[in-house]
Nucleic acid binder design. Sequence first.
DNA 1: TTGTATGCGTTATCAG
DNA 2: CTGATAACGCATACAA
Lengths: 345, 345
Amino acid sequence: MSNNNKLPTIKEIAKRLNVSASTVSRALHDHPSIGLVTTMRVHKVAKELGYEANKMAIYFKERKTYTIGVIIPDLSEPFFSAALTGVEDAAEASNYNVIIGQSLDNFEREKKIVENMKDHRVDGVLVSLTKETSTYEHFDSLKKYNIPVVFFDRVPNRKDINYVACNLVSGMLQAITKLVGIGHSRIGLINGPAKLAATLQRLEIYFRCLKENNLPMDQDIIVSTTLAKADNKKAINKLLGLEEPPTAVIVFNDYVLLDCIAAVKAAGLVVNKDISFISFANLPIWEYMDSVPLGSIEQFANKQSSMAAEFLFKMINNANKPNSAELPLLQHIIDSEMIDYSLAK
Amino acid sequence: MSNNNKLPTIKEIAKRLNVSASTVSRALHDHPSIGLVTTMRVHKVAKELGYEANKMAIYFKERKTYTIGVIIPDLSEPFFSAALTGVEDAAEASNYNVIIGQSLDNFEREKKIVENMKDHRVDGVLVSLTKETSTYEHFDSLKKYNIPVVFFDRVPNRKDINYVACNLVSGMLQAITKLVGIGHSRIGLINGPAKLAATLQRLEIYFRCLKENNLPMDQDIIVSTTLAKADNKKAINKLLGLEEPPTAVIVFNDYVLLDCIAAVKAAGLVVNKDISFISFANLPIWEYMDSVPLGSIEQFANKQSSMAAEFLFKMINNANKPNSAELPLLQHIIDSEMIDYSLAK
DNA sequence: TTGTATGCGTTATCAG
DNA sequence: CTGATAACGCATACAA
């Protein structure tokens, strides 16, 4: 006698009252066409039986799941857990559920997750891409199932997509201008792996901001890392080992920077005295650290993801309308700012 | 012409081949009763049409969703994001999906999330409780829907539940013994809010370990905090302000400890010289910090949650068997260990 | 070897 | 006002 007591259904109620299932259904929805007495009797029995509509049946009929999927590289990165929270909030407001998939920066996993979400017929998908992702057929294939996709933060390098991303130009410009203002003229760059779209972006902005500040460009002080710990250290040490090292460095992101700081200390140097850093992301732990970067350029995890979620719901709702015109592409770029930690300390 | 092209169904295939839907269904499953030719023709057409079974229909029929829900307080805590990852891994292995709900340590939210997960007919629920949760009717109610529940880490103070938790005794004993070994005899405690089950647990273990090490107990060096930042500082400052402050302190968790360290520095004191700390959880950022605790007692987020997930799947599978005997309660307590950071530096 | 009928729980359409 | 029927997509017991 463990689990055989099935949940009450409309049919149950109908049987008890000797009315038809459709009557019960309508009564439960207080449909005006049903007589007051009948309606009340139905409600009464429903309550007695503890009846609750089986949403799965309704969803099945509606061909909807009221569930969206979120695909992100790695939840252990605060950026993405914040992003997920943003999505969850937006979803909750729209009465949607969120199913989650971590790609772990692995392209094959990403594909598998997409496949799985398609199987579960999610009503839409939010994605922040893998480092490895450079083809997008697996997302394109979702169109066949009328599953809309919105990308955020790590977005494909294509024009025909819906996305929300961050424009890091203003922040970077602000940062470099600040560095120049306090006397720096030799500003290096530790960039990411070439695969990542952000890497190219960083490089372009870097060049642009140097130019706007009339600084010379020197290939020697531009290095890159695969983002692996050892490689991060190698990158910073390469800069430190130069005949004329940079006095400030723009770093690909906060995680790389953590390793840089450790390497600087290991070399017997002092952060913000011998060398200063500005990076991207704004890790929540800086406030507890001794050697904080001079600044960090916000990527607004939460803002990006919740806006992406709103886009997605807009698309989902549009698709549900009977004579829906094709929605124009939803694209937004959030302006970033530099956060000045040096002032905070 | 946006979305009206419906997906191919079994009926479609049947129509094209002038056979019945059931034949198609069986052929697609390579049922032996279907003739080879028919089977092949079905497969061929299925491929042409790009047919894929609508899993939602199957799930509906099976009265299953192949989805489990995870309710955790806050994803921004590395502990819980690690826990979620553990669940996701376990779920993936069993071909399940994970829908997620953050209670934000708010009891009402927790109730709402449970309600929502029930509506979505998840096959099971994993929970780490809110700080505020002291009644469990909302979970008990899931029994009615045959939705099994397994708790982890923050578990109800009840015997009739399925859970996985951490036994912090051995770690704490190890920690205090170590402190005693390096000369500490006045070991304080910064405990959490009385609401949390863990608070009482910590206190008990603390007493027990002091006793085992023949240390006196002094109420003056036992303080507590609501876990709010300001309160954390107040707690440590109270200890520091004592006539005879403790030389070592066991702290409720790593987050509290971060604030303690900041306060110690602010007071012009030096961690591990003037005062030493041991706490609970093992935050991944310690390796980048200058003032690391002497040790931390592992709570094994990943291990707890993935084991809890396995329990859950066991229950789910058991419920699916036709003549399933009631499963005994699944309970496990993981032995914790002290992680020695001082050696790592 | 294949087809028919039925059911999962609900709602919409059409009749009465 | 209410009921019968069909449909969502699939699987299976039962017939043939």
